[in-house]
Structures are given as C-alpha cells and as structure tokens.
C-alpha cells in the first residue's frame, strides 16, 4: 500500500459518501444520473466476486463491502425511495448505458489476462468503470447547471482515478513484474474522460463562478 493508493481509495470513498450524504439529507437526487450509479453498482458486483474467496486484508475486505453497500443503496434510493425518486429526471438521463455494457463485456472476452470467468468479470469491471461516468457527464452537459455537491462528486471520482495512476507509476518503479496494461490503459481512458470536466471545474473555481459546462 502506498500513499497514492491510500489517498485514491479515500477520495473514492469520499465521493460515494458525498453522494449518499446529499441524497440522504436533502432527499433529492437532482442532477445525478441513475444510469451511472447502476453502472458503478455493476462494476463493484463484477469486480468483487473474490470478496469471500480471496482474503487480502481487513482493509481490502472492508472497503469492498463499503463500496458494494453504498453503490447499491444509492441505486435503491434513486429508484425506490418515495421522496428521492420524485427528483430523478428520467427524461434527461437518457444515455443508453446498455450500449456500454455489451461492448465492455465483448472486449473483456477478447482482451484479458486469463480466460477464466473470474478474470473476465474482473476485466469487464475495469472497462465498464472507465466509461461508467459517461451518462453522468452527458446529464451534466444537458442540465448545464451543476449543484456544488454533484460537481464535488464528479471531481472526487476523477481525483481518485488520477491518484491511482500515480499509484501504478509508483508500483511500476518499486515492484518487479508489476506490469498491468489492461488496468493502466482502462484507468487512463477513464481519467481522460474527466479531463474536460476538470478543466471547467477549475475554471469555475478559479473565477469563483458557478460551474457551467458548455453545451
């Protein structure tokens, strides 16, 4: 465990807690894409299949449980909570996220480290995580205005992946044989997807204006 990875995991944890806090306290999910949340729940479900078979550390198991519980409860809140669901704007959140799931699964069948069910599901979860933010970014473009909790949520998600890239660089130089192109490339693609959002986020923060994304 290195500082970049720990900071990345804490930032990732903060992003889901910010989101849960927002939904739980103001009982609203305005501006949040349910599709992205469903994709993240699927990412964790397919990545943590080894939760009960391979024990790595208490930290690892604990964090996996937190991510699984939080992502599924966010989906539950938006879909079933009697007050929250009313603030879900399904007419705007129209990204056909099933078009993301299939290509990621097919790609995982073709490009993977081992052709086993667990490995293919794990690789699928990496590819899916790289594109899972797209429905959310599309929704933000559409609704144009971003309330600061949603902006912070997306910012923290991007920061977590950027920190993981530093973690991979660190591990590449400190651990022999630590080479994982699939993890690195999908992580890089994911971070690049945030790049333009980061740009506008910092612009609004620097000029102290409300965050506006160009149409």
């Amino acid at each position: 465990m290195n500082i970049f990875r720990l900071a990345g995991d804490m930032t990732h944890l903060a992003s889901v807690l910010v989101l849960l806090l927002k939904i739980h306290t103001i009982k609203s999910c305005a501006g949040i894409s349910l599709k992205t949340q469903e994709l993240y729940a699927l990412v964790f479900a397919t990545r943590y299949l080894d939760l009960f078979t391979d024990y790595i550390s208490l930290y690892n198991t604990l964090m996996k449980l937190i991510f699984l519980v939080s992502s599924f409860s966010i989906v539950w809140y938006i879909r079933h909570h009697k007050i929250v669901r009313r603030s879900y704007d399904k007419d705007q959140d129209t990204f056909r996220h099933y078009f993301l799931v299939l290509p990621c699964f097919l790609l995982a069948l073709v490009i993977n480290e081992k052709f086993t069910v667990k490995e293919i599901m794990w690789t699928f979860s990496l590819y899916l995580e790289a594109v899972a933010i797209l429905p959310q970014l599309v929704l933000l473009q559409r609704t144009r205005n971003i309330d600061n909790l949603t902006g912070q949520y997306v910012f923290l998600l991007g920061a977590y992946r950027s920190l993981y890239i530093l973690n991979w660089i660190y591990r590449y130089f400190t651990e022999p044989h630590y080479v994982h192109w699939i993890t690195w490339i999908s992580g890089l693609v994911q971070t690049l997807l945030y790049a333009d959002f980061f740009y506008y986020y910092f612009q609004s923060w620097k000029n102290n204006v409300k965050l506006e994304l160009p149409a």
């Binding site: 990875r5 995991d9 990732h12 080894d50 391979d54 790595i56 550390s57 690892n60 964090m63 996996k64 991510f67 480290e113 081992k114 794990w122 993981y164 973690n167 591990r171 651990e175 044989h177 630590y178 994982h180 993890t183």
Partner: peptide, 10 residues
C-alpha cells in the same frame, strides 16, 4: 503469481 498483485487494489 504476479498477476494477482493487480487484484489487491480496489
């Protein structure tokens, strides 16, 4: 073997 080292990440 080494490939598992990517699995110790979240």
């Amino acid at each position: 073997e080494y490939s598992n080292s990517a699995k110790d990440e979240l």
